[in-house]
Design a binder for these strands. Structure first.
Lengths: 133, 133
DNA sequence: TTATCTGCAAACATTTTGCAGCGAG
DNA sequence: CTCGCTGCAAAATGTTTGCAGATAA
């Protein structure tokens, strides 16, 4: 059933809409609080979970296992190129890799393949900055 | 400095040596306890952390963010093809993908690229079983 | 009206840390 | 003998859940 449209859900959705990088539930909660649009932390978690299930946001696991969320522009399958420094994210298509993955799996007798594939690096701006101009 | 060789560290290393799939710290701790080779949970965590830093074990994040460990046979960079059902793991080389990743990153001005790439599916045995022969 | 959602606080699970004592080198 | 390692228990995270009251439809 379609979720009820509450002030809280709208606030979270709106925030995600305006955010371009992956953010943790806690960061989003904090942003809302600062904006005066306060929403309970539990509600933020519940909302994100719902949005993720509905495929409206992408979930990524940080190195430490924390869940990071981001509204995906592309509905179809894609991957991410994330700046380790500032979080800027670019959506990229996996094209060649998908085929490679299936082929690789088949070679070992595996079926029903899914894959994780994300790139982390320094974006142009951040690498310029850390080069120490 | 080289870590001190204690009974505990040996026990964890040995267990990993004998284990072929990814296991959580808690699972490993439990196995040791059952084997009578009991080691404190904190020590298991500390040891795994050390081994991971030394590149002697691979770390993978489960869907729920839990850390899974496995001794890697190959020292050089590789990826994993993991059976979702039984945990059986095959190490595969990324070959083409590495190049693709760098190229993709460069196209967007990113540098210092790292990537996660793991495949999850059903191994031959498990897919046969679930096909319900 | 009423089933769902919210907020809070407590519960959970995983991982980290402080500290006194043990033990490898 | 010493300094790192261990175990325990406490604490820090990140996330989930129970429940009473609020609220969208």
């Amino acid at each position: 059933m379609r979720p009820r449209m509450t002030r809280q859900r709208a606030a979270v959705s709106d925030l995600l809409e305006r955010t371009d990088d992956f953010r943790s539930a806690q960061q989003l909660h904090e942003s809302l609080r600062e904006a005066g649009d306060s929403v309970g932390l539990a509600t933020v978690y519940r909302t994100l979970q719902a949005l993720a299930e509905a495929g409206e946001v992408d979930v990524l696991r940080a190195d430490d296992g924390e869940a990071l969320y981001r509204r995906c522009e592309s509905v179809k399958h894609h991957h991410h190129l994330v700046c380790r420094e500032c979080g800027t994210t670019v959506e990229i298509s996996g094209d060649g890799v998908e085929a490679w993955a299936v082929e690789m799996a088949a070679r070992h007798g595996f079926t029903a393949i899914e894959h994780t594939l994300d790139l982390f690096g320094l974006c142009a701006q951040c690498s310029r900055r850390s080069a120490g101009a």
